[in-house]
Amino acid sequence: MQQRRSLLSIPASLLFLLPAGVFVFIFIILPFFWIAAVSFTNRTLTGRTAVDPEYVGLANYLRLFDPDRFLRSGEFGASLVITGQFVFFSAIVGQVLLGLLLAWFFFNRKGWVRETVQTLAILAWIMPDVVVAFAWFAFLDRDAGTLNQILSTLGIGKPDWLINLPLVSVIIFNTWRGTAFSMLLFTSAFGSIPPSHLETAAVAGANTWQRLRDIILPLIRTHIITDLILITLWTFNTFTPFLLTGGGPAFQTELVSIFTYRTAFKFFRFGQGSAVGMIMMLINLVFAIFYLFLLRRQQVKL
């Protein structure tokens, strides 16, 4: 068979690529190298080192990983641990699992319950961050918040969410915020499963759990991996909890994104901030490579 001829000659296609290439270079590649370079200096925005930053070698990185303080509250290691908990509970357990369960629960069902739940979940997902954070701040208030009104009516008491349970609060918040995405993705994934598979299984006497485990999950495995990649990366980098707790009290909700912000912008220490940024990028890269590896292996097997 004759190979399909490209519509454009190679020089012409390069010409078409050029404008996009220039933008990518100026706004992505150049800043990347700039940040990498700044991370080896003590550059700041204000103060003496704004005028003549000095090359400090690996000092910014060594400071981040200084074993004496690594795990102390308000330091990089502690922030990584908090982020790990946050990602595990709000992204993997919260958004992905809850999204999967919701999609599974409403699979092949119709009616107002499904419509209402899906609409509410999507609403939570599409509202602007600041609006949502403001609403949750009011919702979680100890004395006047809706949540505690409900809980105290039920006789459960009035926990002080943002002070005594700050991490739990932002985990619940982030789960609420982002479950819609996983739910939608899994709903469409379920739609792609040939009905005959499930009907055959039903005839063979498979129960609900067996159908989920042996038919549905294997068939939507790539969807699950894609969802995991996206949700993990998004959650790892999310900044919205800052609007609820500001990273506090006493750094208890200081996610790495907030740590980066505090390092780089609270006192404009761009050198140190860039170093944190570089580390965060490497972590993101490791996540992405790991998931892509899983994805590729899966495709080969199919």
Partner: peptide
């Protein structure tokens, strides 16, 4: 002071 030392 900090703005001045940064020439801002």
């Amino acid at each position: 002071p900090e703005f001045v030392s940064a020439n801002l």
